Simulated assay, not measured.
Amino acid sequence: MSKPVEIQSAAQFSSLLQDSPNVPVVVQFYSASNEASKQLAPLFERLSSSLSKRKIATFAKVNTETEGLKALVSKYDVKKVPVFLVFRRGSVEYKVASDDPAKLQSVIEKLASDIENMGGSSSGTGGSGSSSSSGGASWRGADLPRGYTDISDSIDVKGLELLNAETDFPVRALFSKDKPSALDKGKSTSDEKDWVESDTDEQLLLFTPFNSAVKLHTLQITSLPPTDSDDDDVPMRPKTIKLFTNRPHNLGFDEAEDIDPTQTIEIGENDWNSNGTANIGLRFVRFQNITSLVIFVVDVDGDSEKVRLDRVRLIGESGEKREMGKLEKIGDEQGE
């Protein structure tokens, strides 16, 4: 399939989403009489020809003037055209809209690049978050809650700050979309340092600012401490974590100990899955309109004075991006 699928009915549209569970489905809502739609049509055709052939994405078109498609137009709140929606596993993940064809073209090209880099091959994980990714697709340590997405892309990585980490462990590695090297090599003593360990004691303070206000639903933490080390000070998994929201900067350790957190989390041994990931549900009503998150690792599950983090995933709904016009990453309708 190289050309976009021209949707003729709501049933056909639903079937297309069901038949493409492992790759993004990019849908253009357009009008044959709209000038901006006409200008973007060749670009959309080129993207479809390039990415569909390599099974990176599926492309479709919905003519908003078609009487039988009015229900789709209403369901996805399409008020102006052209509008582009990107679906993953049947849910809207991105919505791209603009009255400026040049700006919209820039957004679509970047979106296409992101899709290609994510490498949504047909051999992806489907609904399973425990499988490793191939061909560049994002690795997931645990399943996503229904209706929500990984919003780690909303993090302002330049503003990340991690206190009490050993200096040769990169903080950005925590948010890598790659499978942890400890799992890739079948052991947690990998020489590749794509994880973080604490320095003088078992505590860490991670300041995570966002590019836009977000809603946080779930925190996923992956920790893969070595199991075959004779070192008495081998790092352990975190046990107690405190979360603080909307701080203008990172906290100090004394301050984090003294003030009330937004939520305190106790992680038990049974909370870790086979990927070494704990899937932590947050008190959703307390994590609305969040501009920054401080993650305070208080102590570990053991006697060690070191803690290890391999991956951090933030799951929820992201707000409107501040760059490149109106590029929204959203989850399904809130129903939980």
Rank of each mutant, 00 (worst) to 15 (best):
residue 172 R to T: 15
residue 116 E to I: 03
residue 143 D to H: 10
residue 12 Q to V: 03
residue 46 R to L: 12
residue 180 P to V: 00
residue 231 D to I: 01
residue 104 L to H: 12
residue 69 L to R: 07
residue 76 Y to Q: 03
residue 319 G to S: 06
residue 204 L to C: 01
residue 265 I to S: 08
residue 310 D to K: 00
residue 287 F to R: 12
residue 59 F to P: 10
residue 204 L to A: 00
residue 151 I to C: 09
residue 94 Y to H: 13
residue 247 R to N: 04
residue 320 E to H: 05
residue 190 S to G: 11
residue 62 V to D: 01
residue 247 R to Q: 15
residue 201 D to I: 01
residue 263 Q to L: 13
residue 95 K to L: 08
residue 264 T to C: 09
residue 82 P to K: 01
residue 231 D to S: 01
residue 111 L to N: 02
residue 184 D to G: 12
residue 269 E to L: 08
residue 177 K to V: 02
residue 261 P to Q: 05
residue 332 D to H: 09
residue 303 D to W: 09
residue 93 E to A: 03
residue 139 W to T: 07
residue 247 R to E: 12
residue 74 S to G: 10
residue 126 G to P: 10
residue 243 L to H: 13
residue 274 S to C: 05
residue 2 S to T: 12
residue 194 D to H: 01
residue 157 V to Q: 13
residue 218 T to K: 04
residue 140 R to E: 14
residue 39 Q to M: 14
residue 187 K to Q: 14
residue 48 S to D: 07
residue 84 F to M: 12
residue 212 S to D: 15
residue 306 K to L: 15
residue 335 G to H: 12
residue 283 R to N: 11
residue 86 V to A: 03
residue 76 Y to D: 11
residue 20 S to W: 01
residue 138 S to M: 10
residue 225 P to W: 06
residue 292 S to W: 08
residue 93 E to G: 04
residue 20 S to V: 01
residue 224 L to M: 07
residue 280 I to G: 09
residue 78 V to R: 08
residue 291 T to W: 06
residue 217 H to R: 10
residue 45 E to V: 07
residue 102 A to M: 11
residue 12 Q to L: 02
residue 14 S to D: 15
residue 293 L to N: 04
residue 312 V to N: 04
residue 148 Y to S: 14
residue 201 D to H: 03
residue 43 L to F: 02
residue 198 S to V: 00
residue 197 E to K: 07
residue 323 E to I: 12
residue 279 N to H: 13
residue 275 N to T: 10
residue 208 T to H: 04
residue 280 I to F: 10
residue 245 T to Q: 12
residue 40 L to W: 03
residue 282 L to Y: 08
residue 41 A to S: 15
residue 125 T to V: 10
residue 9 S to L: 02
residue 97 A to Y: 05
residue 4 P to Q: 05
residue 98 S to N: 15
residue 151 I to N: 11
residue 278 A to G: 07
residue 196 V to G: 01
residue 8 Q to L: 13
residue 172 R to D: 03
